[in-house]
Amino acid sequence: MSGQFGMYPFIISSLWVTVIALLLAGPVCLLSAIHLTQYARPIVLRIMHPVIDILAGIPSVIFGVWGVLAIVPFVGDHIGPLFGKSITGYSILSGGLVLAVMIIPFILNILIEVFRTIPEELTEVTLSLGATHWMVIKHVLLRKAFPGIISAFSLGLSRAFGETIAVLMVVGNVTRIPTGALQPGYPLPALIANNYGEMLSIPRYDSALMLAALVLLVIVILFNIISRWLIFRVERNT
């Protein structure tokens, strides 16, 4: 122990897990929101609303247990062999999958509100120009909703990046720079949760963990600044 610490593997693991979660959850949420607000009968939305709220209220440790029981074996037994690899299933991909399911209700809830607050008259006037319903969605509603979509995704991103326990339970926690989604990782929040209070006998370990927490905070703030900037740019142009 030379008192030297590196944070690179943890930051990379966190980014991997977050990006996978957002890539999986984003399209699902966007398409679901469009379906629920534009195509489905009103009763479907009325049923789905409480379902989404309940999903959002499930404690994250439950998602973690579900991940260990269902996702980890699934990734280990089916996804791994698909790429010719023999793995345990504790991996970045499992973390991303569990996280995706966890952030879906948050993103979806906001997206539904975003689409519902667009005045119906905008749809009506666009239809009367001879547009089809799909053109209305593609050319008008998505553009109108863009700032809201960015807000929803950035909230999901921040939640995913900071989520600790559910990811920690399925991601493997191996201190190595991951080079693929099927390898185990060790995200920043898991590092802090696993080690703070445990390893403090090692000199300067607590300072290193404090720095890790700061890095976590700064990255989340950066995400938010970038999304604000995107929203600002779009609103100026429409």
Binding site: E121, V125, T126, S128, L129, A131, H139, R143
Partner: peptide
């Protein structure tokens, strides 16, 4: 139905410009 709608221009109570220039 889009052909029918194209034959009618609609002007609503408040202006709803499309989110474009």
């Amino acid at each position: 139905i889009t052909e029918i709608r194209k034959r009618m221009g609609l002007l609503s109570q408040r202006p709803y410009p499309l989110p474009m220039n």
